[in-house]
Computed example of a mutant assay.
Amino acid sequence: MHKEFAEIYDVFMKHVDYKGWYKFLKSYMKNKGEVLDLGCGTGEFIYRFLKDGFSVTGVDISADMLKIAEEKIKSKNIKISSYKLIKDNIVSYSHIKKVDYVICNFDTVNYLENKKEFEKFIDKSAENLKKGGYLIFDAVTEEIFEEIFENGIFLDEEPEYTSIWRYEKLSFEKYFVEIDLFIKQKEEENLFRKYNEQHNKFIYDPQWIVKTVQSKGFEIFDVAKNPDFGESRIFFIFKKL
């Protein structure tokens, strides 16, 4: 991610009900323990877990996101220092010791390259989890494109930026998504800097997800939907055997 995008990420995500999402996650995390937050972004969940007495390791591939997460955590004046922020790939990251919970939010798994990458993600999560630990992640179905795109385009206009999203279906499971992002420059009121992001969004069959994760040494604990976080989003909660 570009540094400029990291700086406006929280503005980009300002409509997300983090408080409600966190409460939803916590409903499956009854006991305090160590949390591995994969794709942690700017740390919105990390400081909430720290406030509630969990220890947390946040992993993200963007150093700029992690820098903002560090600043955010310190600004909260939390009297707990049991956290780490690590720049790494969530598919290959190996934790020093096994944790109680592995979480991965905001359909991050849909941005993995293919099913093989997803399986690597599950293998590493199993490796990093204690026996009886929980793996919690969400994925979106292809209905997301009908949900947020109108005529194949999604326009998001804010004082700090304007973004134009387009998508194209490449195959039964893969979609191409392109984002033109115009970020207002602080030094010039009417000057915008343009960035172009291109990536693939991989759509999994929910039944395939369940069978695959079960084959990796997990049992299914729950599969849930919460319309507050999008009709096309499915939460998967697995327990390590």
Rank of each mutant, 00 (worst) to 15 (best):
M1S: 10
E4S: 09
F5H: 07
F5L: 07
I8S: 03
D10Y: 13
V11G: 07
K14D: 13
H15G: 13
V16Q: 08
G20I: 06
G20Y: 05
Y22A: 09
K26L: 13
K26A: 13
N31A: 12
K32A: 12
G33Y: 01
C40W: 00
E44A: 12
F45I: 05
I46A: 02
Y47G: 04
G53M: 07
V56D: 00
G58M: 03
S62M: 06
A63L: 14
D64L: 08
L66Q: 01
K67G: 11
A69D: 01
S75Y: 06
N77R: 12
I80W: 08
S81Y: 09
K84G: 04
L85S: 01
K87S: 11
K87Q: 14
K87D: 06
D88L: 13
Y93C: 07
S94Y: 11
K97A: 15
V102R: 00
V102D: 00
C104P: 00
N105R: 15
T108N: 04
T108V: 13
Y111K: 07
Y111R: 06
E113P: 02
N114Y: 03
K116H: 15
K120V: 10
F121N: 00
I122A: 01
K124W: 03
E127C: 14
K130F: 05
K130E: 13
Y134W: 11
I136G: 00
D138R: 03
A139Q: 02
E142Y: 09
E143M: 14
I144W: 10
E146Q: 13
E147V: 07
E147S: 14
F149N: 03
N151E: 15
L155P: 01
L155G: 08
D156I: 11
T162Y: 08
S163K: 06
S163G: 09
I164S: 08
W165K: 02
W165Y: 08
R166N: 10
Y167Q: 04
Y167V: 05
Y167T: 06
L170H: 06
F176A: 11
V177F: 01
E178A: 15
I179Q: 09
F182I: 05
I183S: 00
K184D: 06
K184M: 11
Q185F: 12
K186W: 10
K186F: 15
K186I: 15
E187D: 14
E188Y: 12
E189K: 13
L191W: 13
L191R: 12
F192D: 04
R193W: 11
N196Y: 15
E197D: 09
H199M: 10
N200I: 07
K201M: 14
K201A: 15
Y204G: 01
D205C: 08
W208F: 13
I209V: 11
V213I: 12
S215Y: 04
S215W: 04
S215T: 10
S215A: 11
K216N: 03
K216Y: 03
D222E: 13
K225I: 09
D228P: 04
D228L: 09
D228G: 15
F229D: 02
E231I: 12
S232L: 07
R233I: 07
I234N: 02
F236S: 00
I237Q: 00
K240W: 04
